[in-house]
Design a binder for these strands. Structure first.
Lengths: 250, 250
DNA sequence: CGTCGTTTTGAGTGGTCTCAAGACGTGTGG
DNA sequence: CCACACGTCTTGAGACCACTCAAAACGACG
């Protein structure tokens, strides 16, 4: 396995100049824009992105209440999305990595309904909503693709509801790890190792658990040999047992 | 009612009695289609609906795995949507009443990702997806409206995640009752009385609780005078206290 | 070296679940 | 009409899982 992931998060790319933005040449295109275009539609993708934007670790890409104007394709890095209520309750609604889209919750509304914060230095492609609207009318495949994106987000959320509504702590954490490692593998990373960009508390918020419970469950998994834990480095030792844990209604 | 306004190009077999379908004259329009249309767009809405469909209590409108072809505006009645896994886990993902849209989870995909079952005899308006696509390209306001619908569904789901992830049993049930009564009031029903169309078990599945806990919590609310419970008849006696319960992070 | 945020681990509490029994309303057949 | 079955709902007692409170270890960083 590659040891590219062992270097602590200091992989700042070489001074990224404001290069010309081109979806059609982006190596992430198959993840965020798997759109089959005809010859005469090839330029549509490149007209979609306005520019790129860097977001340093700990900074918001957008916040609850911000005027909605665009959605964002993550080019590199990791984000968490979160809602919070007036009384201090808050809930992490998702972790998002390269090739995924954030901001759909504000689409068509007046303002964003959640925060999106970078968990490491990150970069996104800005997709202005009005441009998306316009190009969707011109290009059926793009229109369909965005409907699919929104629909998948809904289905994903329903999956989280299933997790929160019916799983116990161990099952939730197992499902979380398997989900994350699967998405990382689809991006060329190891299928058995991963580096968590989020704290135990953020994991807990996402999974409806307290941070102590998350920590204890990690320890238990490690004791049982299911995973190895070294700070935020996790190695999946027995993926089959984890899958079994999620897929077997106790 | 005359059906002079229905499209002449309808060749659907008249399985059910083909009632005249007309959004522009529907009294629910402001709920499910609050779209501001120009003079020349007024016919768009009426071209949107293919037909209506009745669904008897206990029968599915669509099921997980069914080929996706349309979304549905609920004209009357109540539905629950539910996902279920191979191992017997299942989760009610929502209760839906008149003026609301179901089926968005399958939009743009190949097949529906959940079940939708009628909790009482109900009727829906069928909105074929290809027609929606086509009309969305012609009519910007319609396009925006459907983006808004999908986005709101996502935001709604995030709210449920907050509930499931951070609230205790009493808070969940209070939030559930307040949400439901608010939606009913928007439809002209009482703002303080409601008839539950779902069982305790279905409520529990939605709220991530066991049916016994739901029952106990109803009883507790009744003891404290917050509500009156008579089978599935609920009267909200002290809405302010319920709101306080939800809005005060313990 | 000290501070800070994060993580781990322990001990005890408490909320929800599990298992169980009985009550209630409804529909069915005798 | 009753008797009965059935699904639903209520209520109780005990178990268990996750939470709370607390303390200490750890790594990062100045």
């Amino acid at each position: 396995m590659s040891d590219a992931t062992t270097s602590p998060l200091r992989h700042d790319p070489p001074a990224l100049k404001e290069v010309q933005v081109s979806c059609s040449k982006c190596n992430l295109r198959e993840l965020c824009m798997p759109v089959r275009l005809r010859e005469d539609e090839l330029d549509v993708l490149d007209r979609l992105i306005a520019n790129r934007k860097r977001v340093p670790r700990g900074k918001p890409l957008f916040s609850n209440g911000d005027k909605f104007g665009a959605i964002y394709a993550i080019r590199s890095g990791t984000f968490k999305t979160r809602i919070n209520t007036a009384d201090g309750r808050d809930q992490v609604t998702g972790f998002h990595i390269s090739g995924e889209i954030v901001g759909l919750d504000g689409m068509g509304g007046e303002q964003h309904a959640c925060d999106a914060m970078a968990l490491e230095d990150s970069e996104v492609c800005v997709i202005p909503y009005d441009r998306l609207e316009e190009l969707s009318r011109e290009c059926t495949t793009l229109q369909q693709h965005f409907h699919r994106l929104m629909s998948r987000e809904i289905v994903r959320d329903h999956g989280v509801m299933l997790l929160l509504g019916s799983m116990r702590a161990e099952e939730r954490l197992a499902a979380f790890l398997l989900n994350l490692v699967t998405r990382m593998r689809a991006r060329g990373f190891s299928g058995s190792e991963l580096v968590l960009r989020m704290t135990r508390e953020e994991i807990g918020s996402y999974l409806g658990l307290k941070l102590e419970t998350v920590s204890r469950t990690f320890s238990k998994f490690a004791e049982e040999g299911l995973i190895s834990v070294n700070q935020r480095h996790i190695r999946i030792e027995q993926p089959e047992k984890l899958r079994q844990m999620v897929g077997t209604h106790a």
